[in-house]
Amino acid sequence: MDAYIQGILILSGINLMAVLGLSLLTGFTGLFSFGHAGFMAIGGYTAAAMTVKYHMPFIPALLIGAIAASFVSAIIGALTLKLKGDYFCIATLGFGEATRLILDNVQYFGGARGWPGIPAYTNLTNVVIINIIAIVLLANLIRSKHGRNMIAVREEELASQIAGINVFKYKLISLMISAAYAGIAGGLMAHYMTFLQPKMFALTKSTELTIIVIFGGLGSISGSVLGALVLTSLPEILRAFSNWRLVIYGLAVIIIMITRPEGLMGGYEFTPQSMKKLFSNLKGKRLKSSEGRE
């Protein structure tokens, strides 16, 4: 395959991994994070430390990165998820920026100048396999009682409590899984770029991920997949308009929120059943319209 296309696919896959996690948090649990770039950073730096400094194999290194990110998210969640209002949101914003600033000063990881020489373990095959596993696990979770509880929390907190759902616990679980996914995405990125720099995990990275989730549709895994593929490759193709890219992004977000907040997929999923239903609906419509003509 063309190396250029392969590169775009790998980047899409890395973004997708982080987006899947954020989709669980924002799309299914209704929490908004400005700090997912921070979780990616923790996952990325930890995984790179494991492979570079401890010569660990790739997959265990990724998992340790995920655990580290998840652990930090648990601390932030424990502090803020019980509070009402935007505390969680602002705390994640603070966390994301603080992570970047701290890494700027950690000379062990190269500080602000960056950290070159990370082995290039990430390739299209392992990115695709990891994403497929991640999607299957996430889809299973969403279909289970645990996933339904998260959706209930998103819909109506008080009613969830009354239905015996521990709202705090489910917010925390959602955040921890979400951060673990972001951590793996960070690890994949480190071993694809072979270079890490705190700048790569700035606030814009977090917002980019959120935009993909919204664009794809809150509460839809298929939407996230579609969103990650389109929004990662589109800017690559439209390089010439790079300055206007983010202007259009911003406008698109506003317009989506005002006119079609459900995003591209809007809670719908591509499954064999849903496709069947869609086709039978289309057929039904065609029949009806032909009847009308007679």
């Binding site: 299973n140 979770l141 009682k145 209930a152 015996g164």
Partner: peptide, 19 residues
């Protein structure tokens, strides 16, 4: 209704993710 029925199932998160 299905969401509220959650009370009657006790499988873990891990079991859910691996179905």
């Amino acid at each position: 209704v299905l969401t509220a029925c959650q009370y009657n199932a006790n499988y873990s998160l891990f079991e859910a993710m691996l179905y």
